[in-house]
Design a binder for these strands. Structure first.
Length: 216
DNA sequence: CACTTAGCACCCTAGACACA
DNA sequence: TGTGTCTAGGGTGCTAAGTG
């Protein structure tokens, strides 16, 4: 830091750099982050068991999770472990959800949590302390090699095939949307005809939800 | 209804660490 | 020793719930 008197600013004020559609309703008690699908989370879990916790370079190299950065994966690991500090599991072939399950049961006034993750409050542990914890966690949680060595991770796909699949998905959704729009339009016409024939009846459509959201 | 508060997710960066 | 990587911890903006 060059300016020791200035408080570090992690993010500039004003609008955020990235607009996130997933800035959404509360996701309490949900292990998934909005940016992670259940499948992706499961792939990461397997990759962590196979390559070892914190071995981001190998996971990225395997291309089993294209587009994910080590920062994103680390955040998801923290959610799975249920604790912010990951150092004590570094390099271990463990199931992070086992630790997460254990951490979720830890309660008490001294337990500080952030995003449902236990935050380290007792000062930064020394190198020796971390090594000691790694050894202990290895004895307690490490899975045998014959278990994780046969884990199958998704192979990197041809980006053109991925693009084509996404286009197909988009076409399907567009078709579904126009079908729903047609149904709505037909119902409206039907109702108008009915009201023309029986003008005395009230228009029950007033109680219907607005469909404006469907318009692009 | 407007405002406040609580709690969440994601972003960001300083500093520690590993390695060439 | 320089450089790149990793990660702990803090900041910001969001929504839901609470309150007057």
């Amino acid at each position: 830091m060059s300016e020791d008197s200035i408080k570090p600013q992690s993010m500039s004020s004003g609008p955020r750099n990235v607009l996130r559609p997933n800035d959404s309703a509360s996701l309490w008690n949900c292990s998934l982050s909005p940016g992670w699908s259940r499948e992706e989370s499961e792939i990461l879990r397997k990759a962590l068991i196979k390559f070892g916790i914190g071995n981001w370079a190998k996971i990225i190299e395997s291309q089993c999770l294209p587009g994910k950065t080590n920062a994103q994966m680390n955040l998801q690991l923290q959610r799975m472990l249920g604790q912010q500090s990951t150092a004590e599991f570094n390099g271990l072939h463990i199931d992070p959800l086992v630790i997460g399950e254990k951490n979720s049961k830890i309660q008490g006034p001294t337990v500080k949590r952030k995003n449902n993750c236990i935050v380290n409050t007792g000062g930064k542990p020394s190198r020796e302390e971390i090594k000691r914890r790694i050894q202990k966690n290895k004895e307690l949680y490490e899975l045998p090699e014959e278990k994780w060595s046969e884990f199958e991770l998704p192979k990197p796909e041809d980006p053109f095939l991925v693009l084509e699949a996404k286009r197909g998905e988009l076409r399907h959704l567009q078709h579904e949307l126009s079908s729903v729009e047609e149904q709505i339009s037909a119902l409206r016409k039907q109702r108008q005809l009915h009201l023309q024939q029986f003008p005395g009846e009230t228009d029950s459509s007033e109680n219907e939800p607005e469909c404006a959201d469907y318009k692009e």
